[in-house]
């Protein structure tokens, strides 16, 4: 028996909205410690990694490890049927070929339940090495979203250059060039608005804006986003999911041909 109840059900809605355009299907691995998901997009350029700890749920039970293959656009459609303030419970029996979703309104006057078919999926898990990154930037997630959107007007790629002073995003194309520079915040009164750069070594890397714009769909999940970068390794874009865990995106860099 698997059952996970989340009072802040909107987190599920936001999570699905964050990944459904990047991934078509994925396996939700459920165990006694929580729910994890790891999946690459079809072009093998980016990877989504989700971790939700059992402690973060209001009720959590998982008697036997369970791998649920889910067609994400379908789950997203069903999650859209939940109200923003609804409590969401996900349930499955051990050998189930379906998953149940129960949406309860806060006042308990409306209860909806949906059942969705699971799918058989063969996915390969990748081992992601523990890495010390040369630069870790924390910034408002809305600012990151805006920068990716704005620079997409100029080109397909963004060059991210990080030094101890701050971080610079640059794009160029047929119409010209654009640079957006963010300086490290002088004071950190408002933690959510701060730009913080933790740098061991300056880096300058190029990434496809198309994918960063997909990642930025996770903006409603968290006020801050964290970018971890080292020379010639995939970028990590991390959004915290409240008390539950995290949503991380990995993106392979573009290199000089």
């Amino acid at each position: 028996m698997f059952e996970a109840r989340l009072v802040q059900g909107s987190l599920w809605k936001k999570l699905l909205e964050s990944i459904k355009d990047l991934l078509n299907e994925a396996i939700f691995d459920c165990s006694s410690t929580g729910i994890t998901l790891q999946a690459m997009d079809s072009s093998h350029v980016s990877l989504v990694s989700i971790s939700m700890n059992s402690d973060g749920f209001d009720t959590y039970r998982c008697d036997r490890n369970l791998s649920m293959g889910i067609h994400l656009p379908s789950l997203s459609k069903i999650m859209k049927c939940a109200g923003n303030d609804d409590i969401i419970t996900m349930k499955a029996t051990d050998d189930a070929d379906t998953v149940s979703l129960v949406f309860e309104s806060q006042n308990n006057e409306k209860v909806s339940d949906y059942e969705m078919k699971l799918i058989d999926l063969d996915t390969e898990h990748l081992g992601i090495p523990e890495t010390e990154y040369s630069c870790v930037v924390k910034m408002p997630s809305s600012e990151f979203q805006r920068i990716c959107r704005d620079l997409s007007q100029l080109g397909d790629s963004v060059v991210i250059a990080c030094t101890k002073e701050g971080v610079k995003f640059s794009a160029s194309g047929e119409l010209g060039t654009g640079n957006i520079k963010l300086c490290q915040s002088a004071s950190t009164d408002k933690e959510e608005e701060a730009v913080v750069v933790d740098m061991n070594e300056a880096v300058c890397l190029t990434f496809a804006l198309r994918y960063l714009n997909f990642f930025a769909k996770a903006t409603p999940l968290s006020a801050q986003v964290q970018l971890s970068m080292s020379k010639d390794v995939p970028l990590v874009v991390e959004y915290k999911i409240s008390e539950l865990g995290f949503l991380r995106f990995y993106l392979a860099p573009k290199i000089e041909d």
Partner: peptide
């Protein structure tokens, strides 16, 4: 001109 790399060249299959 820059070329997109694949994640498979950085991360190994488990």
């Amino acid at each position: 001109k820059s070329k997109q790399t694949s994640l498979m060249s950085f991360f190994k299959k488990k």
